[in-house]
Simulated scan of single mutants.
Amino acid sequence: MSARTGPNGKPPVVGIVGIDGAYGRWFARFFRERLGLRTTGCDPALAASPTPRELLGQCDVLVFSTPIRHTAAIVDDYVQAAGGDEAGMLWLDLTSIKQVPVEAMLRSRAEVAGLHPMAAPPKIGSLAGRVLAVCQARVDRWQGWLAHMLDSLEADCVDVVPAAHDRAMALVQGLVHASHMTQARVLRALAADAGGLPLLHALRTVGYELDLTVTGRLLSGNPAIYEGIQFDNPHVLPVLRELAVATGRLRDCVADGGEDARRALRRDFIAEPAALFDAGELASRSHGFDRLGYLLADLAERPCLSVYLPEDRPGSLRELLETFEALGINLASIHSSRTPDGQLHFRIGLDALPVALDTLRKAVEDAGIGRVLEASDAAG
């Protein structure tokens, strides 16, 4: 068996349960375009979905990309439909918790691994720069193919057992999401009396802006995902209880207002938590916060130009900068980024312009270097 083929020496067919969901669509495209594999699947949103038995007969690898609360029952349906014929297959799941779905898949005769991409489906065709939790529960003959698939995803793969994964997710996801959901609720209740969101944003700190960015991301996402993370991971409730105790303790300190309460705040909420980290990590986190602040400042700079370079080749950026130099334009900042559609581009902050912004746009495009996606001289 090569890395690209399954145990039978042939490229496997991949079936995806939930193929019309966000990650179902993403992985279907990944398997087709990055691995050159044929994909099939079923989804409640699709009128002509195959039955579990039909899908099992069409594929060699079965991927469950389904809501957390329904995954175990769906897996059990496939175990029953397979009736033992799944022996020799590889079953994977993409659920945000791992113990329950992996245990469900282990009730089959298939080889089993649980996966958890630690990010929403990206706009690009890989998980480069993202973390992927990997729970290899029962993998033998499919080991080479699975390793090739994981390498092709380009993620930072972390091997972890399902129970440890779920305990960690109660903090990494459950605590973080709960904190931002409660912040959003407090803002909803109190922002108007404080001048409204426009004034709060005008008076923003870096911390406020970063927090509001995470909160906005959560509020614009699929509520079912955040609901599942809170309700369907049994380790989240103890975390929320601890959060409530800590918040109540902080409230009581502030309500007291005395010197003992101030000392308690410094001890209980700053000094003792800081002891969890070593000095080097605290310094690194503080520096990272400064870097994000500089990045936010750069991204707010006006005037600016966003340029897509269609040819990713040595010298493309140099040619672009030569155009700026010829027009006597000094750059204030430059960052590579991606548009909402995933298109790689350079966002360039500019000093005072000696030429009109439209002149600069025309010079870039006339030179055939790239395409201007956005140009703005509006105040930030």
Rank of each mutant, 00 (worst) to 15 (best):
61 V>R: 07
50 P>E: 03
47 A>P: 05
116 H>I: 14
111 E>M: 12
80 Q>G: 12
79 V>E: 10
40 T>R: 04
84 G>F: 08
120 A>K: 02
119 A>W: 13
58 Q>H: 00
104 A>E: 06
60 D>W: 12
69 R>K: 11
46 L>H: 05
70 H>K: 09
106 L>R: 14
60 D>C: 10
48 A>I: 10
100 V>E: 15
89 M>D: 07
59 C>V: 11
116 H>N: 14
107 R>D: 09
121 P>G: 03
113 A>M: 06
92 L>Y: 09
65 S>F: 01
41 G>Y: 09
59 C>H: 01
83 G>L: 02
62 L>V: 06
118 M>T: 12
49 S>N: 02
71 T>C: 15
52 P>F: 11
122 P>D: 04
59 C>G: 00
104 A>D: 00
46 L>N: 05
74 I>S: 06
64 F>T: 13
53 R>C: 02
42 C>W: 06
96 S>M: 04
101 P>W: 08
85 D>G: 03
46 L>G: 03
115 L>N: 08
106 L>G: 10
57 G>L: 10
78 Y>G: 06
120 A>G: 13
49 S>E: 11
96 S>Q: 09
103 E>V: 08
51 T>G: 07
86 E>H: 10
118 M>Q: 13
77 D>V: 10
40 T>K: 04
80 Q>R: 12
43 D>A: 15
99 Q>K: 13
94 L>G: 05
86 E>C: 12
109 R>L: 07
62 L>T: 05
48 A>S: 15
49 S>L: 03
87 A>M: 00
100 V>P: 01
63 V>M: 12
72 A>G: 02
123 K>Y: 01
84 G>A: 09
113 A>T: 13
83 G>C: 01
75 V>C: 02
113 A>G: 05
113 A>Q: 07
62 L>E: 04
75 V>G: 04
107 R>M: 10
98 K>H: 07
104 A>R: 03
104 A>G: 02
69 R>T: 11
79 V>Y: 01
89 M>W: 02
122 P>N: 05
48 A>L: 08
45 A>T: 14
63 V>P: 00
103 E>Y: 04
77 D>R: 13
89 M>S: 12
99 Q>P: 00
87 A>V: 07
102 V>Y: 04
118 M>C: 13
104 A>M: 04
42 C>N: 14
40 T>H: 05
44 P>A: 10
104 A>P: 01
102 V>H: 05
77 D>E: 14
57 G>H: 09
105 M>P: 01
123 K>A: 15
61 V>E: 07
76 D>W: 00
98 K>V: 14
52 P>W: 05
77 D>N: 10
117 P>V: 14
112 V>T: 11
81 A>D: 02
107 R>P: 05
99 Q>W: 05
60 D>E: 15
114 G>Q: 09
55 L>Y: 07
82 A>N: 04
45 A>E: 13
65 S>Y: 03
95 T>C: 15
92 L>I: 11
46 L>A: 11
93 D>N: 14
53 R>G: 08
58 Q>L: 14
90 L>D: 09
39 T>M: 03
71 T>V: 11
99 Q>T: 15
46 L>K: 05
60 D>P: 08
77 D>G: 15
85 D>H: 02
72 A>I: 01
74 I>H: 03
83 G>K: 00
